[in-house]
Design a binder for these strands. Sequence first.
DNA 1: TTTTGAGTTGTTCGA
DNA 2: GTCGAACAACTCAAA
Length: 473
Amino acid sequence: MTTVVWFRQDLRIRDNPALAAAHARGKVAPIFILDDVTPGPRRRWGGASRWWLHHSLVSLRHDLGHLALFKGAPSDVLPAFIEKVGATAVFWNRCYEPYAIARDQALKASLQAGGIEVQTFNGSLLHEPWEVATASGAPYKVYTPYWRASLAKPVAAPLPAIKPQVDASVPPGDRLDDWQLLPTRPNWAAGWQQRWQPGEAGALEALDAFARDGLADYSQQRDRPDLKGTSRLSPHLHWGEISPRQIWARLGLETESPSNRKGAEKFLSELGWREFCHHLLYHFPTLPERNWRRAFDAFPWRQADGDLKAWQQGMTGYPLVDAGMRELWQTGWMHNRVRMVAASFLVKHLRIDWRRGEAWFWDTLVDADLANNAAGWQWVAGSGADASPYFRIFNPVTQGKKFDPDGDYVRRWCPELARLPDEHIHAPFDAPPETLAAAGVELGRTYPRPIVDHARARKAALDGYEKVRSAGD
DNA sequence: TTTTGAGTTGTTCGA
DNA sequence: GTCGAACAACTCAAA
């Protein structure tokens, strides 16, 4: 008996429920479908995600021994593939993007109507979004009670690795290179393979390194963009090269020292945010498109295309923001602390609609994830569930001094400022002229002047939120 | 149904 | 330099 396993965001052979169940039935016909056609917001993977996907598929194909690649609408591709390999069943692990849920439900119904057995599994979350609910059965809208309720539920143990018996008659489908997932002209991802190792082996190595070395100081170091204090597991998690269950199981063992235990709990609570974001997206499917708090529809966003461009290019004149945006552009990733500062700057200092920032992150982040991205941006904007209060406006200079105290992070990504002394590295616009000259910095020429004044921008943002407040009634 | 306590990540101002 | 209070009300979750 051959079972088709449709791989999506579960590009691994360990703890893969759909693959394990199919293997238990007999031969397996694995397939990945590049779906650029199903309609929906952010249905098409961004540029950085496509780079990651390419390499992750190479890795998965190697681990499986065979992987069929097809491009197009799953509603066309999958039934044809099932027929071609003579399968009687298809298994997959669930996705949670609203368009994917609609697509998969329709496909499941039509396959079942055609006599094909369909089974779906949880391969991406500790708990399904509908499994965690308040006493009255409603979805949670606040993180802390959500996570408390999640912690009270048992987490399934991870499944062992599967080396499936692949059906020899499985057609290979497309050549991966023909999908052109990798950038050319220019190849902006040159050098990314020194920084990232997409695929299951890389994910396991990253978890191993983090569990070994990262937990003891995680609670403090996670906020320091100048240090390597975070796990960098986010892109691996997004593509399902590793599952939250595996992380849960691994970190649950790291309890020999109190500091490790504290770090593990903190990290798992970050995993909890990922779960909460998926919970929100599932229960509020317009999250990527509409203000979760509708009163924010009254916020007076600016068009300001030039300011948007300066932000995207890391040319705002605020070193921490610029360092973050350049790190993003050059590596496909940005430190979480800096994401908050840079996002807050776009939304509150520049008063540009969070959706335009969300779109930029979607295209440039290797860990771009609809649930996390949409919920994160709405959190920063103040329009989201359990969001940052409107009056919380990050000061990029204060944040820089606090979390990049020696300026190492700014110097790495804004080398034109590298020779400034520590006390001026986060606010070159306040440095004495002779200090700037000695460091070879000429504002407006070698590094931009601030595109907005912090105090004025802060006041304007608060005025904008006043409109939201009055629209709330 | 009503009430009560609580709520990721900050900044600024004044003592 | 450090510290606490104000920011401003509102919504949520649970008793």
